[in-house]
């Protein structure tokens, strides 16, 4: 029972991260391998606002934020204005992002404020990644962007380890977060911690928000339209590049929040944090039927519960293998996932 409950919270985290995979896959049919690393850097941006960093590390994060902001903003502005204006706007944004990150890195912000401050950074990093590593590859054989994604993932993962500019390989933890382990409820031997409540509330709120955004707003509908037929969407006057970039940014924001919660859940944060979480979240997305938003949520929760319960019943050493075993079994029965609607129709 306790295991199932733990699994539920873990599953909600997987789901939150899985949404980023599913959104991106739904729109450009790309497995964004670097999504786990976006999550990692999102969480690290929150971490850098939350603690007092060494000046070089603050400078490193500021540089990363600045460069990403430059690429993201200038690319977006170039769609509307001249190249000169785009470069100008990009430089302005880079300056703002970099200086804020630098000062934020050297000062302490409360945890919640840090997470909010980190969101724009996660978004621009994802946008920059799309611009550099994926957009030039559209229309190529699908293996090509996938390998580019693996490359980007390796790059970011190892960038996070570079010292002194980034964080090295040592595990770090968010300061003054002992409260997360506090019990808020205990009933017949089943206990619920503050963190579990926080994860549940935040994850469900974000998923509900995403669902509302996609189904009830004009831009969300444009996103779905772009996913179904990009060419015709362009003929409707939808800026499809913009929609794709937005999808990346949205996924990264969800992942950044998920990443912070995941780091709190593990009690530590380190550059490899995105790897396993990313792969499992992706597995969750496939499990639910990739490209399908509710599917990712169900897949995530299912995976989390099975993993926790399974590890308790079988052998904790096999915990990391359970997810994939479940995946293979599910795909045997339903080749396109639980909620999959058969192969996605090609444009």
């Amino acid at each position: 029972m306790q295991q199932a409950l733990n699994g539920l919270t873990l599953g909600l985290l997987y789901a939150l991260i899985a949404l980023g995979y599913t959104l991106v896959y739904g729109i450009i049919e790309l497995i964004n391998f670097a999504h786990g690393e976006l999550m990692m850097f999102g969480a690290f941006f929150a971490y850098s606002f939350c603690v007092v960093l060494d000046p070089p590390t603050a400078a490193g994060m500021a540089t990363l934020g600045g460069i990403s902001a430059f690429i993201a903003v200038s690319d977006r502005v170039e769609g509307v204005r001249s190249r000169g204006e785009a470069v100008g706007a990009g430089l302005g944004a880079a300056l703002v992002f970099a200086s804020f990150a630098y000062h934020g890195g050297l000062h302490r912000l409360p945890l919640v404020a840090s997470v909010f401050a980190a969101l724009p950074y996660a978004a621009v990093l994802a946008m920059a990644l799309e611009r550099i590593a994926y957009r030039p590859l559209r229309g190529q054989d699908r293996l090509i962007p996938l390998i580019s994604a693996i490359g980007a993932s390796l790059f970011l993962q190892n960038l996070g380890q570079v010292e002194p500019w980034f964080f090295g390989t040592e595990r770090k933890s968010f300061p003054e977060t002992d409260w997360v382990k506090d019990q808020v409820l205990a009933y017949h031997g089943v206990s619920v911690s503050t963190l579990q409540v926080v994860i549940t509330v935040v994850a469900i709120a974000m998923m509900a928000g995403l669902y509302f955004f996609i189904h009830k707003t004009r831009v969300g509908t444009a996103m779905r339209a772009t996913a179904q037929n990009r060419k015709v969407a362009a003929l409707m006057g939808i800026d499809t590049d913009g929609v794709i970039v937005l999808t990346f940014a949205l996924g990264a924001v969800l992942a950044a929040v998920g990443g912070v919660l995941y780091a709190l859940y593990l009690g530590s944060i380190y550059p490899f944090i995105g790897y396993m979480a990313g792969i499992k979240a992706f597995t969750a997305a496939v499990l639910g039927g990739i490209g399908n938003v509710p599917g990712a949520m169900v897949g995530g929760v299912l995976l989390g519960v099975l993993e926790s319960v399974g590890a308790a019943f079988i052998d904790p050493g096999y915990k990391d293998a359970i997810a994939f075993a479940v995946l293979i079994l599910v795909l045997l029965v339903r080749p396109s996932g639980i909620f999959g609607t058969g192969p996605v129709e090609k444009v």
């Binding site: 509908t221 779905r224 339209a225 179904q228 037929n229 060419k231 015709v232 969407a233 003929l235 129709e345």
Partner: peptide, 8 residues
């Protein structure tokens, strides 16, 4: 070929 968004 009309280009309807089939799931909208």
């Amino acid at each position: 070929g009309r280009g309807i968004f089939p799931r909208l």
